Computed example of a mutant assay.
Amino acid sequence: MKPHQLAHATFVIYQDIEPPEFWTKYFGVSPSRAGMKGQPRTMPSGRVSAFPWRQGIWSVSSKEAVTSDDLAPHLRYLAGLLNLPRPDLRELVVRTNAQMRFFCYWDNATGDRIPDVPESIRTMMEEMGGTIEIDEYR
Protein backbone atom coordinates (compact mmCIF):
# COMPACT_ATOMS: atom_id res chain seq x y z
CA MET A 1 0.00 0.00 0.00
CA LYS A 2 1.33 3.43 -0.96
CA PRO A 3 1.72 6.00 1.81
CA HIS A 4 -0.57 9.03 1.78
CA GLN A 5 0.94 11.68 -0.46
CA LEU A 6 0.73 15.32 0.49
CA ALA A 7 0.40 16.47 -3.13
CA HIS A 8 -0.76 15.39 -6.57
CA ALA A 9 -2.10 17.06 -9.70
CA THR A 10 -4.74 16.43 -12.34
CA PHE A 11 -4.94 17.92 -15.84
CA VAL A 12 -8.60 18.54 -16.68
CA ILE A 13 -10.52 19.73 -19.72
CA TYR A 14 -14.22 20.58 -19.30
CA GLN A 15 -16.29 21.09 -22.44
CA ASP A 16 -19.41 19.82 -24.22
CA ILE A 17 -18.43 19.98 -27.91
CA GLU A 18 -16.13 16.99 -28.39
CA PRO A 19 -16.55 13.49 -26.89
CA PRO A 20 -13.87 12.26 -24.47
CA GLU A 21 -12.42 10.03 -27.22
CA PHE A 22 -11.40 13.17 -29.11
CA TRP A 23 -9.07 14.22 -26.25
CA THR A 24 -7.79 10.67 -25.78
CA LYS A 25 -6.78 10.57 -29.44
CA TYR A 26 -5.40 14.13 -29.38
CA PHE A 27 -3.14 13.50 -26.37
CA GLY A 28 -2.51 9.81 -27.06
CA VAL A 29 -3.19 9.09 -23.39
CA SER A 30 -5.99 7.17 -21.69
CA PRO A 31 -7.82 9.38 -19.19
CA SER A 32 -8.13 8.81 -15.45
CA ARG A 33 -11.74 10.02 -15.73
CA ALA A 34 -13.88 10.97 -18.68
CA GLY A 35 -17.53 11.52 -19.43
CA MET A 36 -20.02 13.38 -21.58
CA LYS A 37 -22.72 15.72 -20.39
CA GLY A 38 -25.87 13.76 -19.55
CA GLN A 39 -24.19 10.33 -19.46
CA PRO A 40 -24.18 8.20 -16.30
CA ARG A 41 -21.28 9.11 -13.99
CA THR A 42 -19.24 6.34 -12.43
CA MET A 43 -17.75 7.37 -9.10
CA PRO A 44 -14.18 6.46 -8.00
CA SER A 45 -15.76 3.78 -5.78
CA GLY A 46 -17.17 2.09 -8.90
CA ARG A 47 -20.79 2.96 -8.06
CA VAL A 48 -22.89 4.76 -10.65
CA SER A 49 -24.07 8.13 -9.38
CA ALA A 50 -27.74 9.03 -9.42
CA PHE A 51 -26.63 12.27 -11.08
CA PRO A 52 -25.24 12.24 -14.64
CA TRP A 53 -22.27 14.30 -15.78
CA ARG A 54 -23.26 18.00 -15.73
CA GLN A 55 -20.63 18.77 -18.38
CA GLY A 56 -18.08 16.89 -20.43
CA ILE A 57 -14.82 16.06 -18.69
CA TRP A 58 -11.49 14.52 -19.67
CA SER A 59 -8.75 14.25 -17.05
CA VAL A 60 -5.50 12.52 -16.24
CA SER A 61 -3.91 12.39 -12.79
CA SER A 62 -0.36 12.07 -11.48
CA LYS A 63 -1.51 10.46 -8.22
CA GLU A 64 -0.65 6.86 -9.10
CA ALA A 65 2.38 7.64 -11.28
CA VAL A 66 4.43 10.05 -9.15
CA THR A 67 5.57 9.62 -5.57
CA SER A 68 6.32 13.06 -4.15
CA ASP A 69 4.93 15.44 -1.56
CA ASP A 70 5.87 18.38 -3.80
CA LEU A 71 3.76 19.62 -6.72
CA ALA A 72 6.58 20.30 -9.19
CA PRO A 73 7.27 16.60 -10.02
CA HIS A 74 3.54 15.95 -10.49
CA LEU A 75 3.09 18.95 -12.80
CA ARG A 76 6.23 18.14 -14.80
CA TYR A 77 5.09 14.53 -15.17
CA LEU A 78 1.72 15.63 -16.59
CA ALA A 79 3.31 18.19 -18.91
CA GLY A 80 5.64 15.50 -20.25
CA LEU A 81 2.94 12.83 -20.52
CA LEU A 82 0.67 15.20 -22.47
CA ASN A 83 3.51 16.70 -24.51
CA LEU A 84 2.74 20.22 -23.28
CA PRO A 85 2.90 22.89 -24.48
CA ARG A 86 1.15 22.16 -27.76
CA PRO A 87 0.92 24.97 -30.32
CA ASP A 88 -2.65 24.14 -31.35
CA LEU A 89 -4.13 23.47 -27.90
CA ARG A 90 -5.17 27.07 -27.18
CA GLU A 91 -7.09 27.12 -30.48
CA LEU A 92 -8.85 23.84 -29.54
CA VAL A 93 -9.75 25.23 -26.12
CA VAL A 94 -11.31 28.31 -27.77
CA ARG A 95 -13.08 26.27 -30.50
CA THR A 96 -14.65 23.88 -27.98
CA ASN A 97 -15.39 26.62 -25.43
CA ALA A 98 -13.38 24.54 -22.96
CA GLN A 99 -11.96 25.23 -19.55
CA MET A 100 -8.52 23.70 -19.02
CA ARG A 101 -6.67 23.50 -15.73
CA PHE A 102 -4.16 21.78 -13.53
CA PHE A 103 -6.10 20.96 -10.38
CA CYS A 104 -3.66 20.41 -7.52
CA TYR A 105 -4.27 18.62 -4.23
CA TRP A 106 -2.13 20.14 -1.46
CA ASP A 107 -2.17 18.71 2.09
CA ASN A 108 -0.92 21.37 4.48
CA ALA A 109 -2.00 20.06 7.89
CA THR A 110 1.13 21.53 9.46
CA GLY A 111 0.40 24.96 7.97
CA ASP A 112 4.00 25.50 6.92
CA ARG A 113 4.07 24.02 3.42
CA ILE A 114 4.23 26.33 0.42
CA PRO A 115 3.07 24.94 -2.97
CA ASP A 116 5.96 24.70 -5.44
CA VAL A 117 4.50 25.48 -8.85
CA PRO A 118 7.36 26.15 -11.29
CA GLU A 119 7.12 29.49 -13.07
CA SER A 120 7.62 27.71 -16.41
CA ILE A 121 4.46 25.64 -15.77
CA ARG A 122 2.48 28.76 -14.76
CA THR A 123 3.59 30.58 -17.92
CA MET A 124 2.88 27.58 -20.14
CA MET A 125 -0.68 27.16 -18.83
CA GLU A 126 -1.39 30.87 -19.15
CA GLU A 127 -0.15 30.90 -22.77
CA MET A 128 -2.32 27.88 -23.62
CA GLY A 129 -5.41 29.47 -22.01
CA GLY A 130 -5.48 27.32 -18.89
CA THR A 131 -5.28 27.87 -15.15
CA ILE A 132 -3.64 26.28 -12.13
CA GLU A 133 -5.81 25.78 -9.07
CA ILE A 134 -4.59 24.56 -5.70
CA ASP A 135 -7.03 22.86 -3.35
CA GLU A 136 -5.33 23.21 0.05
CA TYR A 137 -6.35 21.03 2.99
CA ARG A 138 -5.48 22.00 6.57
Rank of each mutant, 00 (worst) to 15 (best):
S59E: 15
R76A: 04
R86V: 06
G38I: 10
G130V: 12
A109W: 06
T110W: 00
L75R: 02
F22V: 06
F27G: 08
D69E: 08
Q99C: 06
T110L: 10
I57H: 01
A65P: 00
V48D: 04
L81Y: 05
G111H: 11
Y26L: 15
D107S: 12
V117A: 04
M1L: 06
K63H: 11
L84A: 03
N108I: 10
G80I: 01
K63I: 03
E91D: 15
Y105S: 10
R95E: 14
W53Y: 15
L89R: 04
S120T: 12
L81I: 05
T10N: 10
M36Y: 01
R138M: 07
Q55V: 05
W53I: 05
S61P: 01
R47A: 15
R47E: 15
L81T: 13
W23R: 08
M128P: 07
I132K: 07
P20C: 11
P115D: 06
W106N: 04
M1E: 02
R86I: 07
T42Y: 05
I121P: 02
G130L: 13
S59C: 14
G46R: 05
V60F: 07
R41E: 10
P118F: 08
R33E: 14
E21F: 01
D135V: 02
C104T: 06
I17V: 15
L82G: 08
K25I: 09
W23Q: 09
A109L: 12
A98S: 15
K2N: 08
T67F: 05
D107P: 00
F103N: 13
K2G: 00
E133N: 12
W106V: 03
P40I: 07
I134D: 10
E133W: 02
Q5P: 00
I57L: 14
M125G: 07
F102C: 03
H8L: 00
S30C: 07
N97R: 14
F51Y: 11
R33Y: 13
R122P: 00
R101T: 08
